[in-house]
Nucleic acid binder design. Structure first.
Lengths: 135, 135
DNA sequence: CATACGTTTGACGTTAACGTCAAGCCGTGG
DNA sequence: CCACGGCTTGACGTTAACGTCAAACGTATG
């Protein structure tokens, strides 16, 4: 019997992660070149462990949030132990700024959607009008 | 006595709009080159009216929302009368997609902020610990 | 052994949305 | 008249985040 229940893998090739997250191997190598990842090597080949995979997940979340790789790099370094409170506060500040932005965007977008709905309504009315006037 | 109460201006130079909205004149010319604006000309000089100014406001809102100039162009054309319902529906779709995205981002960001707060808490504790162990 | 596959590095290309000159036109003030 | 400020077009530069080859290597397989 196995000591582990789920037995999650610990070793990944670059293509494994690429396909799992729907990104290119080029992107992953690019992140490494920017210092966001540091997989081990066997010969020349990159070997990724769960830790690297976790970092990649954080990277992708950061990207979804619209942060630059530079920002994400700073963020990741907070997970690497010796984070200074000042640094953390700074990043938390950036995150909150962006949250405020997001909320404003959401309002803008809701405005936009209702404008579109109104235009749509008018267009539909126009169509109906044309049909009744050209029978 | 004037027939208008507020008497809003109707003619603007490119620099007026640029400074009003905190963008460059280059940007405005760029938007025109992409067909998003079509100010009148007096000689060679662009003259913007309220209508152009209104379009610029829509452009900037679109940009805040992360839409490409191409998307914004489509959106603007909806205001130019003959919008087809299909087009409107398509853009409303895009807007809603993005709204869903924004809501997901907001959740992601809230997660991120609480992570940062936690890291900050740990860092503070570590600092306090160091102070008591090195008096 | 041949070939096929996955991997590597390196170099160059790409896209969007402007920024940054450069050179020239135009009307005004002194 | 001449300088000045604001406007014009045109051309080239910039940045981020990869994409797209190319050439070479290692290894597993028939």
């Amino acid at each position: 019997m196995n000591h582990s229940a789920a037995e999650p893998r610990d070793l990944f090739a670059i293509a494994d992660l690429a396909s799992e997250f729907g990104i290119s191997t080029r992107a992953i190598r690019f992140y490494e070149s920017k210092g966001l990842l540091a997989p081990e090597r066997v010969g020349g080949t990159r070997i990724f462990r769960r830790r690297d995979r976790a970092r990649l997940i954080l990277i992708l979340r950061g990207k979804r949030l619209g942060f630059s790789l530079r920002d994400i790099s700073d963020y990741l370094s907070l997970y690497d132990a010796h984070s200074h409170t000042a640094q953390v506060a700074l990043l938390a500040g950036k995150a909150e700024e962006r949250l405020v932005l997001l909320e404003a965007q959401k309002r803008d977008l809701e405005t936009m959607i209702s404008e579109l709905r109104e235009i749509q309504l008018l267009a539909r009315q126009r169509l109906a009008q044309e049909r009744t006037s050209h029978p």
